[in-house]
């Protein structure tokens, strides 16, 4: 078991091996389908991004609204595979970590190796548990997308498993990676 803090660095990432249990603390940014589409459009048009991607972590998550008295509503991971087509431009801008659920395409595995990044798995369907690890939640961009907007979450001891390490080694056999959506 390892403790890791964001923002990430190559030194921190190089310590992580596939299958390892990791407790993450620091800032992560939520983004799912529509937010990815918008971010990549902004990059293509060379416009300013709503937050700096350098050494950052994106969490594939659309949280429920926060009930009164709670820092965050339920906030578990969504299927990562749907975001695979958008990964490269983000890595080029300095993204270092991704959190989600399920396998990735072999293309993303190669990209993770090329850009020396890391992919984490969060406990699937465990949004209430993960909400307990959120210290603060702030709307950053794309308010019009509702749950699909980008939120900045400050997390403490977020339990994760390394899905793909910086050398492109995946916890899942290749056959189950490219399947499904």
């Amino acid at each position: 078991m390892l403790r890791v803090e964001s923002p990430l660095s190559l030194e921190k990432i190089a310590k992580l091996r596939k299958g390892e249990l990791v407790y993450l603390s620091g800032i992560v940014y939520t983004a799912r389908d529509q937010a990815h589409k918008k971010l990549v459009e902004l990059i293509k048009k060379r416009k300013a991004l709503p937050f700096s991607l350098k050494d950052s972590i994106i969490y594939y998550c659309g949280p429920t609204p926060s009930p009164e008295g709670e820092v965050s509503g339920s906030c578990g991971p969504t299927t990562s595979l749907r975001m695979d087509g958008y990964v490269e431009p983000l890595l080029r801008e300095g993204l270092k970590g991704m959190i989600g659920k399920g396998g990735r395409t072999s293309k993303v595995r190669e990209l993770i190796k090329k850009y020396k990044a890391v992919y984490f798995l969060a406990p699937s369907g465990c949004g209430a548990l993960l909400a307990q690890k959120v210290l603060s939640k702030k709307l950053i961009a794309f308010k019009e997308l509702g749950a699909e907007a980008i939120y900045q979450l400050e997390v403490k001891d977020f339990p994760l498993i390394v899905g793909i390490d910086f050398q492109g080694r995946s916890i899942y056999p290749t056959s189950s990676e490219s399947q499904g959506r």
Partner: peptide, 13 residues
């Protein structure tokens, strides 16, 4: 936790 705190079991409701 979800039962105790009246939180959605999963964010995908």
């Amino acid at each position: 936790i979800a039962r105790r705190k009246n939180l959605a079991i999963c964010q995908d409701t």
